[in-house]
Write a protein that binds this DNA or RNA. Structure first.
Length: 324
DNA sequence: CTCGCCACCCGCCAAC
DNA sequence: TCGTTGGCGGGTGGCG
């Protein structure tokens, strides 16, 4: 058993510093909270050519050249993302070889594109930043690029959705290594929730509303739907009602909806309601019945079934375990 | 837990 | 001809 697990964080010019810093803090924190008999994490930072890497925010990070890294000594590779992930053959070639030798290879946010270029996502399920999902799917047709999860594990390949989702992914890595208790301790220390309640919608909703101009959906009648649904969670969000509001026939509405949200209206509405319920459950004084009502489930039983479907645990159990 | 009912949603197809 | 619309029917799954 190795005394330390070496985590290699790979950066590139224009990378997002938070993609690297978030997970790095998680592992650092895990070292402080982990029990003595478990291997500690050792963090390495590398880039294709080494030296000082200027991130998108101009924060500079000192890195080693990949050529000086022996993959055999690495436990987990994290490839960070950036606003635009340019071509980087040196990095991709190294990654292609190294991924076979390490235990886990992870893509944070748009770092997934570099994994895709190295062929690591072929035939696998993956996530990336919500705005890049379609492009990743186009770049790597054999992958199953998903929209909903914050992070996703498929064999040795881990991917995370948003930028801050890299923290969630790192927490999941810590949980896999050190167990749930350790991961929870780290999460509490970092003041983030162990498991984020909803899908990606919670991060992207505001930005999505801004970026969705009338181009994507005809007449832009879908544009206001987002905030309207959030504001009317306890109201009637049935397909007929939504279609009426959007001014389309049901059949047409459902088609547009799915093209935009990558999931059906009922699925999306339920995700929004679960998200709202989770936020409310974090408040210990909120009763289950009241939570079910305000988040739009109508009654406790319906909310319970929705939680069981999604998380495999009841709302009460979910609150105890994840929102303590 | 079961079961009948119905909302949902997706393939199909005709009509712009 | 191609893309979009929207009505219809039926299988599926959630709800009471």
């Amino acid at each position: 058993v190795k005394r330390t697990r070496r985590i290699l964080i790979i950066l590139h010019p224009g990378a997002l510093a938070l993609d690297a810093a978030g997970p790095a803090e998680v592992f650092g924190s895990a070292n402080r909270f982990g029990s003595g008999d478990l291997p500690r994490y050792e963090l390495l930072f590398a880039s294709a050519e080494g030296g000082s890497i200027r991130t998108a925010s101009n924060l500079r990070v000192e890195t080693d050249a990949l050529s000086t890294i022996d993959p055999e000594t690495i436990d987990t590779i994290l490839v960070v993302g950036g606003i635009e992930v340019g071509r980087n053959p040196l990095l991709v070639d190294w990654l292609k070889q190294a991924a076979r030798l390490v235990r886990r290879t992870c893509g944070i946010c748009t770092g997934a594109f570099l994994l895709a270029e190295a062929g690591l996502l072929d035939g696998r399920r993956a996530v990336t930043h919500w705005s890049e999902v379609e492009r990743l799917q186009a770049v790597c047709p054999s992958a199953r690029v998903e929209l909903d999860p914050i992070y996703l594990v498929d064999g040795p390949i881990w991917t995370s959705a948003g930028v801050t989702a890299g923290i969630d992914l790192a927490l999941a890595l810590v949980q896999a290594d050190h167990g749930r208790e350790a991961a929870l301790a780290v999460a509490r220390n970092l003041v983030v929730f162990m498991q984020r309640p909803g899908g990606q919608a919670q991060f992207s909703r505001v930005l999505a509303a801004q970026s969705q101009s009338g181009r994507l959906d005809p007449q832009g009648r879908m544009t206001e739907l987002d905030s309207w649904m959030s504001d009317n969670l306890s109201g009637d969000l049935s397909v007929p009602r939504l279609a009426e509001r959007a001014g389309m026939a049901e059949r047409t509405f459902v088609r547009h909806f799915i093209r935009r949200y990558k999931r059906s209206p009922a699925e999306h509405v339920e995700a929004l309601r679960i998200e709202a319920a989770c936020a409310r459950l974090a408040d210990r004084s909120a009763s289950l019945k009241e939570t079910a009502h305000v988040s739009g489930f109508g009654n406790e039983e319906r909310m319970r079934r929705a939680f069981l479907r999604r998380f495999g645990v009841s709302p009460g159990t979910y609150r105890e375990r994840f929102l303590a």
